[in-house]
Simulated scan of single mutants.
Amino acid sequence: MAVNKWIKSVVGSAVIGSFLLAGTSAYAASASVFVNGQAQYDTITVEGRTLVKLRSLTDPKWLVFAYDSKTRIVMVHTKDNSKTVQLREGEKTATVNGEKVEIDAAVVNKNGLTYVPLRFISESLGASVHYNAQEKRVIVRTPARQAQYETLMRGDLTEARGIALGLMRLKGKAPATVPGEGYHYNYYTFPEGEALRFTMNYAGYSEAYYEVNEDGLAILKWQLDNVAEREWGTKPNFTSYVYFLDEFMGGVFTYGIVDKQGKDTQLGRFHQDSTHNLVLPIKGEKRTDARP
């Protein structure tokens, strides 16, 4: 019964598991944009300003959207009605709680979707924003995803691991792996006490090691392609680690811990219809990688 309770709770966290400089436009044309952990490949640049889809900010607990096709007005309000915003296509002003507000680029409608400037998102809608100048990366998070980010970086170990496995994974310059045939299991490991570093093994065809950075993105650091027989990056060395084996084709899930001497202690094995990206609590384990 306890295992089933954790399955439902952590799978939900993992599935949920996937971010702006407001004061200047210098970043606008060159920075990559991530909203709720997802890369925005269809941003629009207007007069040096980056515009993102308003719908990319969808958060059931935060914003409600409506569109009047006759007036071409988009209406947005927070769930608690503390903020009400109206935007009209082609205009550089918005109405926020009944007051006219200047925005730094005109609202654009493209393929039926409304695009708004990044600055407006931070100043008027209250999204959590961050600009990583070194990586030229804009990070936007809605309230629910900001709370999830807090858990990922310094919250409950088991929940953080579930979130980490659901993150968008960036491969950078690593070569694409050659697919195998008949994928039937995923095997993932975390160093003992940690959530921000992990490995993924895809049915033995390929292995990958990721580190979660300060932006809450999983960055590939090492990759082994057993099909193409090639390796990229630096392989990690976990002195002791916990593992989770999801044999999804057979509906079997196994988890355990390997100590510093290499001894494998299986902690559980059970049948479950859906266990993708599942992690379970390890009795007595305490988190050691929480970031302030």
Rank of each mutant, 00 (worst) to 15 (best):
K53S: 15
Q134W: 11
S32I: 11
N97L: 08
V108Q: 11
V242I: 11
A2C: 14
S122H: 04
L152A: 01
A174Q: 03
R291M: 10
Y255Q: 02
S240Q: 08
D246N: 13
V11W: 05
T142D: 04
L157G: 00
T239I: 14
M1L: 07
S240G: 10
A28I: 00
D246I: 05
K171C: 10
S274L: 04
R72Q: 10
V33D: 00
T78D: 13
Q146H: 13
T234C: 09
G17L: 09
G251T: 13
M153V: 09
T114W: 03
M153G: 04
P143A: 13
I73P: 09
L51Q: 02
A94V: 07
R161K: 08
D246F: 06
L63H: 04
G204D: 15
F65G: 12
L217C: 03
Q146P: 01
T265H: 02
V129W: 00
V52K: 00
Q86T: 11
D42E: 11
A2D: 15
T114H: 03
A160R: 04
R161L: 06
I219F: 06
D259R: 05
K286N: 12
G48C: 03
V129Y: 00
L220R: 01
G180F: 09
Y185D: 06
Y188M: 06
T239Y: 14
A2M: 13
A228P: 12
I16A: 12
E214H: 07
G268C: 01
G37L: 00
L57V: 14
I16Y: 07
G17N: 10
S206F: 14
V33Q: 01
R269N: 06
G17D: 13
I257K: 06
K235E: 12
R119C: 05
T24R: 01
S18D: 07
L196G: 04
F238Q: 02
A28C: 07
T234W: 14
M249G: 14
T58E: 05
E211W: 12
V3S: 02
F34I: 06
R49I: 10
D156N: 12
I7H: 14
P143E: 13
G284Q: 05
R230E: 08
T93A: 02
D225W: 04
H130F: 13
L170F: 02
S18V: 11
Y210G: 01
E123Y: 09
N186R: 03
N186K: 02
D80L: 02
S69M: 12
D59E: 12
Y255W: 04
K100W: 01
N201E: 07
T71Y: 02
R287M: 05
V35T: 06
E285A: 10
G256H: 09
L196D: 01
E150T: 01
V140K: 05
N132D: 14
V3D: 04
V178G: 08
L165N: 00
T50N: 07
V33L: 08
E229V: 11
S30D: 12
N237R: 08
P292F: 07
R287L: 05
E150H: 01
Y255D: 01
A228Q: 03
R161N: 06
E99L: 14
T189V: 11
A66T: 08
T95V: 08
D68W: 02
E285M: 11
F244K: 04
K286Q: 15
T189K: 15
V140W: 03
I219D: 07
M1I: 13
I282A: 06
T84M: 09
A31F: 00
V108K: 08
F198G: 03
S274A: 04
N4R: 14
S274K: 14
V116N: 09
S274P: 04
A28S: 10
A127L: 08
